Amino acid sequence: MNHLIVYAHPNPESFNYAILNTTVASLEEQGHHVVVRDLYKLNFNPILSGQDFETFQKGETPADIKAEQEYITNADVVTFIYPIWWTGLPAVLKGYVDRVFAYGYAYAYGEDGTMQRLLSGKKGFMINTHGTPKEVYDEIGMTQSLKQTSDTGIFEFVGIEPVGHLLFGGVPQVDDAARKEMLVEVQQTVKELF
């Protein structure tokens, strides 16, 4: 299978980076082809501009958006790896979704007003970290809300089938042994899903 991993964390020594490396290694061990788009390393422009809209209205796509869309088109599985900041996506990843999952590429409306999910046939997987203890997010309903806004609001909206979502809480407060257990869970989940 062809896997696209969209990664969004600015610190190359972060736990998210360890998750990325574990995910890539687990997939490659099973013979999958993996492409990583590290949005911070790429200095991806997250701002959906008026010029973008003008270009779209001419029936064209800005080059940087077109390049990312080609990675998605070629992928069987799209995985997002990112930290939860302020109960949402980092700005660079939100901007990636805004610009790349564009109308006419990722979704459209038919003449009768029905929704067309243009990325159907692909699978989606998410891995997140957050500083709040998992039990707190579970108790207040935030865990379910995060899954709904990303799995349903992003992936399902464009036809990508969510097949898994790992959320690791309290990451800055736990010890290395707990983080290693989290990485084992990433490895096992990846092998079970793909």
Results as ranks from 00 to 15, higher is better:
Asn2Thr: 11
Leu4His: 07
Ile5Asn: 02
Ile5Cys: 04
Val6Asp: 10
Asn11Ala: 11
Glu13Pro: 02
Leu20Arg: 12
Thr23Cys: 01
Val24Gly: 05
His32Glu: 14
Leu39Ala: 08
Leu42Asn: 13
Asn43Ala: 11
Ser49Lys: 05
Asp52Ala: 03
Glu54Gln: 13
Thr55Tyr: 01
Lys58Trp: 00
Gly59Asp: 07
Glu60Gly: 00
Pro62Ala: 05
Ile65Met: 03
Ala67Tyr: 12
Ile72Val: 13
Asp76Tyr: 07
Val77Gln: 10
Val78Phe: 12
Val78Gly: 10
Ala91Cys: 04
Val92Arg: 04
Gly95Asp: 00
Tyr103Glu: 09
Tyr105Asp: 07
Ala108Cys: 05
Tyr109Leu: 14
Glu111Thr: 14
Gly113Leu: 12
Gly113Pro: 01
Met115Val: 14
Met115Ile: 14
Arg117Glu: 15
Leu119Ser: 08
Ser120Val: 03
Gly124Val: 14
His130Val: 00
Val136Tyr: 09
Tyr137Asp: 14
Tyr137Arg: 03
Tyr137Val: 15
Glu139Tyr: 12
Ile140Thr: 15
Ile140Gln: 03
Gly141Trp: 09
Gln144Pro: 01
Phe155Val: 12
Gly159Trp: 03
Glu161Tyr: 01
His165Ile: 02
Leu166Arg: 09
Leu167Tyr: 02
Val171Gly: 09
Pro172Met: 10
Met182Phe: 13
Glu185Pro: 00
Gln187Ile: 00
Glu192Ile: 00
Phe194Met: 11
